[in-house]
């Protein structure tokens, strides 16, 4: 119990003092995860919509694979990216290992299936509702997808937020590919792992509270910006 109170008060102190170390790793966490979420959304949202509205032979397998990929163990993804990016690996020449870019790549691999799978589910329900109308009105293929994405935008935002939530709290993969290097690749989660290992529970907890607050703040900000609560019957 004592640790928790100490952690809370230390978190307060760090935040109020705009502790430069804390600000740095918080911004890096945001940068890595927001970038990864944007890239994964750019891939996952259209992919999910595409699978929802197109009938193709391997569709059922594609959905099964997607759902299976959602459960990819981050450590394994990290290991995989490490091997690819390491000096001897196929992309070793790029020199990306132990950089934020490597962490972004790992997170994109982890959350793209989540975003694609959730958006597939949402778009499929909408497509079932709209199917007859869109066919009757002779909407073109791109008009159909455009309409479904626009009318399903709230569910799609939820998909992107689920991806963000998974990525911001992820530690296994980015620890491996980023290396938790101070002033280079240290982010909130890896710092928490480090402080816990060193036995500095108060600092680790303080960082944990900041992490949670960050996740909540991003969700709230997006929901308020998009006015989700206003149209509760949509």
């Amino acid at each position: 119990m004592n640790d928790i109170f100490q952690g809370l008060s230390q978190a307060m102190r760090l935040v109020l003092a705009f502790d430069p170390g804390l600000v740095e790793i918080t911004l890096r966490s945001l940068h890595v995860t927001v970038t990864a979420t944007l890239i994964a959304s750019a891939i996952g949202l259209p992919l999910g919509a595409w699978i929802a509205v197109n009938r193709f032979r391997l569709r059922r397998y594609a959905i099964a694979v997607l759902n299976a990929l959602m459960g990819l163990p981050p450590v394994v993804v990290g290991l995989f990216v490490y091997v690819i990016l390491s000096r001897a690996g196929p992309l070793g020449v790029l020199g990306l290992l132990f950089t934020p870019t490597a962490m972004i790549i790992a997170q994109v691999i982890i959350i793209t299936p989540i975003i694609a799978s959730i958006s597939h589910q949402a778009i499929r329900e909408l497509w079932a509702d709209y199917h007859d109308l869109l066919i009757s009105l002779h909407a073109s293929r791109s008009q159909r997808i455009g309409t479904l994405i626009w009318d399903g935008r709230r569910a799609l935002m939820t998909a992107a937020l689920a991806g963000f939530g998974r990525a911001i709290g992820e530690v296994g993969a980015i620890m491996i590919v980023g290396g938790n290097i101070d002033h280079a690749t240290r982010v909130l989660t890896t710092a928490i792992a480090l402080e816990t290992g060193k036995g500095d529970f108060a600092l680790a907890l303080a960082l944990g509270f900041v992490l949670i607050a960050l996740a909540i703040a991003v969700n709230l900000a997006l929901h308020i910006l998009s006015g989700t609560e206003r149209g509760s019957r949509w």
């Binding site: 909408l126 509702d129 709209y130 007859d132 109308l133 066919i135 009105l137 309409t147 009318d151 949509w234």
Partner: peptide
């Protein structure tokens, strides 16, 4: 068949409501 459908209209037994 597909292109002449745009010059027809259909009112369904159960109206299709868009999220708009």
């Amino acid at each position: 068949a597909d292109s002449v459908r745009a010059r027809q209209a259909f009112v369904f037994q159960t109206p299709v409501l868009m999220r708009r």
